[in-house]
Amino acid sequence: MEIRRFVDTDWHGEQAGLWDTWHEVVTAGESYDNDPASTEQDARAHWLLPPPFEVWVAAEDGDVLGTYKVGPNKGRLGDHVANASFMVSSRARGRGLGRTLGEHCLDRARELGYTAMQFNAVVSTNTVALRLWRSLGFIIVGTIPDGFRSTKHGLVDFHIMYRQL
């Protein structure tokens, strides 16, 4: 498995690309608040943000199995705190790819000079993500009651998670 900066050919990939992973995760309606009917153009606009954001992919034999993006959480006076988003394809779940991407992202955020990282909206029913982020040193610093409309569970909470770097 190779983790590297996104290049445009990763969007569709040799076998499966970032678009396939993005579409799969968002249409599930369990971890991202994007419209499950989002178009490919919507997805590109949401995920492929301009610098200072960076997009990274985990690829294996031309197949994009996971991705993350990292950049400032807020504007100029809050840009020392990073924000990141992650997606892992169902084809790679259970292989430790989320942890590998999380660790890589934390290292990259440090290299970029961030002093902390904040996740603005971790869905409370996404227990795999919550367990992973806690194991990597994140704590819940706030909860938005009923902030997410899960396709399986109805109204559930969003957690704001934070850790110093």
Score class of each variant (00 low, 15 high):
81 V>Q: 01
21 T>L: 12
155 L>D: 06
64 V>N: 06
1 M>C: 11
79 D>E: 12
86 F>L: 05
131 R>I: 04
75 G>R: 14
18 L>R: 05
61 D>I: 05
130 L>N: 00
17 G>L: 02
107 D>Q: 14
154 G>M: 06
146 D>A: 11
5 R>E: 15
80 H>V: 04
72 P>A: 12
143 T>G: 06
51 P>A: 15
9 T>L: 03
16 A>L: 15
160 I>R: 03
61 D>Y: 11
138 F>S: 00
133 W>E: 02
121 A>K: 00
72 P>M: 09
164 Q>H: 11
79 D>I: 02
151 T>K: 14
50 P>T: 14
54 E>W: 07
29 G>E: 09
133 W>D: 05
104 H>K: 02
16 A>Y: 15
100 T>L: 03
139 I>W: 03
93 R>W: 10
19 W>S: 11
14 E>G: 14
77 L>I: 12
12 H>C: 13
43 A>V: 01
150 S>D: 10
127 T>H: 12
60 E>C: 14
22 W>Q: 09
67 T>N: 13
114 Y>M: 05
54 E>M: 03
18 L>A: 14
97 L>R: 01
164 Q>D: 14
116 A>D: 08
50 P>L: 14
11 W>K: 01
63 D>L: 11
126 N>A: 09
137 G>N: 00
109 A>R: 09
98 G>W: 08
39 T>W: 03
65 L>Y: 00
46 H>M: 11
82 A>D: 10
97 L>P: 04
134 R>V: 07
116 A>Y: 05
77 L>P: 01
92 A>C: 09
130 L>M: 12
152 K>R: 15
69 K>L: 15
159 H>D: 04
138 F>K: 01
155 L>N: 11
41 Q>R: 15
6 F>D: 06
123 V>K: 08
134 R>T: 10
4 R>C: 08
59 A>I: 11
13 G>I: 12
88 V>N: 00
26 V>Q: 08
57 V>S: 03
121 A>H: 02
86 F>W: 12
81 V>M: 09
106 L>D: 04
13 G>Y: 02
78 G>Q: 00
125 T>R: 06
65 L>E: 06
29 G>Y: 06
50 P>Y: 11
65 L>H: 04
120 N>L: 05
75 G>Q: 10
87 M>L: 11
45 A>N: 14
27 T>D: 00
129 A>G: 02
101 L>C: 00
96 G>N: 13
133 W>T: 01
125 T>D: 01
118 Q>S: 10
85 S>P: 04
3 I>C: 08
43 A>Y: 12
55 V>E: 03
146 D>K: 10
19 W>G: 01
110 R>G: 14
52 P>K: 12
159 H>V: 03
58 A>K: 04
4 R>Y: 00
21 T>K: 08
112 L>T: 07
120 N>A: 08
70 V>A: 13
156 V>Q: 03
22 W>N: 05
105 C>E: 10
144 I>H: 11
26 V>S: 06
24 E>Q: 13
50 P>E: 15
16 A>G: 15
